[in-house]
């Protein structure tokens, strides 16, 4: 398969995951350039529509990151995300977007290394798939 540069949208909650990504930066960890970060107050803010719009706009993969269970700055916004995700995955499958293109993970403010790792792995995994192409 020809090597291509997948475009990734990473939606990060402000309090944990965005801070984790900042920590990866201040610790000078390296990860692929493919990811574009979108900041939201809480992973609970993530409307499934955002994810659909990303695929429609030509992103090859979307990763949503929130605080670990119990750590949510807003007490339990991330629990709603956790419940919403399986439904969204279902919907994506029906639209012909394979599961591997969409990830939801917990990343805390202290997990810079984990953020870098996740992004690196996700980029590598997407390179195994063909480019996203037009979504119907």
């Amino acid at each position: 398969m020809s090597e291509y540069n997948p475009k990734i949208l990473a939606v990060l909650c402000n309090w944990c995951s965005y801070a984790g990504a900042d920590l990866a930066g201040s610790s000078r960890m390296h990860y692929p350039t493919n990811v574009r970060i979108l900041r939201v107050p809480c992973s609970g803010r993530v409307d499934p529509m955002f994810v659909l719009k990303a695929f429609k706009s030509g992103f090859d993969g979307v990763i949503v990151l929130g605080c670990h269970p119990g750590d949510c700055h807003y007490a339990k916004g991330n629990y709603y995300t956790r419940r919403r995700i399986p439904l969204l995955k279902n919907l994506l499958a029906n639209l012909g977007v394979p599961e591997e293109r969409f990830h939801f993970e917990w990343v805390s403010a202290s997990e810079g290394a984990r953020f870098a790792e996740l992004v690196t792995e996700f980029t590598a995994a997407l390179k195994e798939l063909p480019p996203m192409g037009k979504m119907i």
Binding site: G44, R45, V46, D47, G77
Partner: peptide, 21 residues
């Protein structure tokens, strides 16, 4: 201002200032 309501509302009536859809 977590926005959980905004992500849940089916009619897009619940909105979040600063992080509008």
């Amino acid at each position: 201002g977590c926005g959980t309501c905004a992500a849940s509302c089916r009619s897009l009536s619940a909105r979040l200032r600063g992080f509008e859809g």
